[in-house]
Amino acid sequence: MPILPPAPSRAELVDHLVRTRIAGEVATPRENNLDHYRKLANGNRHYWFGLEFGDRWTDEQDVLAVMAERCGVSDDPDHRQGQDTIDPMLTIDALDRAAMVLRKAAAGRQRVLFATGHPGGLMDVHRAVAEALRAAGCDIVVVPDGLRADEGMVYQIADVAVQERGATLWHTHSPAPMAAILDALEGSGQPLPDLVMADHGWAGCAGQRGIDAIGFADCNDPALFLAEAEGTVQVTIPLDDHVLSPRYYDPLTAYLLGAAGLR
């Protein structure tokens, strides 16, 4: 794993997030954001990420209001096309909240599971945190062998659970791989994680099962932000989850570990 840079200051990290488009004016267009908010509000479970919202978020404008508050997209309902944004200060505030959760995990030597549906972007973020928590005495969950979900295999690379199809790591927002892991742990009599750090449906499924969860999510993926607003997910970190280079996330990771006292 690449050596992380020194932890940046908040001001330095804001500059980096905006320059690399992890936050600020991100690549995800406004029309795509609104389309996903509408589909979630209309009950399309693909966009619920394994969470159960019942009839609590059936108004697209209510979803937009939460996304403006917690992610930093434009709150103007008449802004229908073009550029949208993630507020870098909200990203850093969420990193600070996540750091508090990680501090607690380290202090309690908790059992922690890491997983990603964005292996091309976020794999090394999860790997670095897993390595730091292991060094602090945490038990990093080992995923049982032979798991399948959504016509693919579920296994672990460098402490991070991923899905594989056809010898390729798969980009997936599905909750099914996380459900397969948790079901297998329960079925074999192993304890469930105290904490899950993941993204998308992997984090949503864990939160819905009552496990403390930290999740990463893009501005077109509202489910985890709604779950944080409801208290089902502890922290949702807003960012573009697949920018030009995975190395762009290294300063963010360094800041998170520094804030958690894990450097």
Score class of each variant (00 low, 15 high):
Asp159Glu: 13
Val143Cys: 01
Leu195Ala: 04
Leu224Trp: 05
Gly108Val: 05
Ala107Cys: 01
Ser188Pro: 05
Pro29His: 14
Gly117Met: 03
Ala167Asn: 15
Val154Gln: 00
Glu151Tyr: 08
Leu185Tyr: 03
Arg10Lys: 14
Gly121Glu: 07
Arg111Val: 12
Leu90Ser: 12
His242Asp: 14
Ala130Asp: 13
Leu17His: 02
Gln208Gly: 12
Thr20Lys: 03
Ser174Leu: 07
Asp93Phe: 07
Thr58Met: 04
Leu51Gly: 03
Phe216Asp: 08
Leu226Pro: 08
Gly108Thr: 10
Glu25Val: 14
Asp84Cys: 15
Glu230Leu: 11
Gln61Pro: 03
Arg109Lys: 14
Ala229Gln: 12
Gly207Ala: 05
Gln61Cys: 10
His171Ser: 09
Pro29Met: 08
Tyr47Val: 06
Gln163Asn: 13
Asn32Arg: 15
Gly50Thr: 06
His171Trp: 11
Ile181Gln: 01
Arg45Met: 07
Cys71Glu: 09
Met178His: 11
Asp93Met: 13
Ala254Ile: 02
Ala23His: 03
Val143Ile: 13
Leu122Gly: 07
Leu185Asp: 04
Asp124Met: 15
His36Gln: 13
Val129Asn: 02
Arg109Val: 07
Leu195Cys: 03
Arg80Val: 13
Ser245Glu: 12
Arg127Leu: 06
Gln110Lys: 10
Leu257Val: 01
Ile140Pro: 05
His16Trp: 06
Pro77Lys: 08
Leu147Val: 05
Asp87Trp: 04
Ala229Asn: 07
Arg134Gln: 11
Gly210Lys: 01
Gln83Glu: 14
Ile140Glu: 04
Gly215Arg: 01
Gly146Asp: 06
Pro238Cys: 13
Pro246Ile: 08
Arg263Ile: 03
Lys104Asn: 10
Asn32Trp: 09
Ala206His: 02
Glu60Gly: 13
Thr172Asp: 13
Val26Leu: 02
Gly82Glu: 04
Gly189Leu: 07
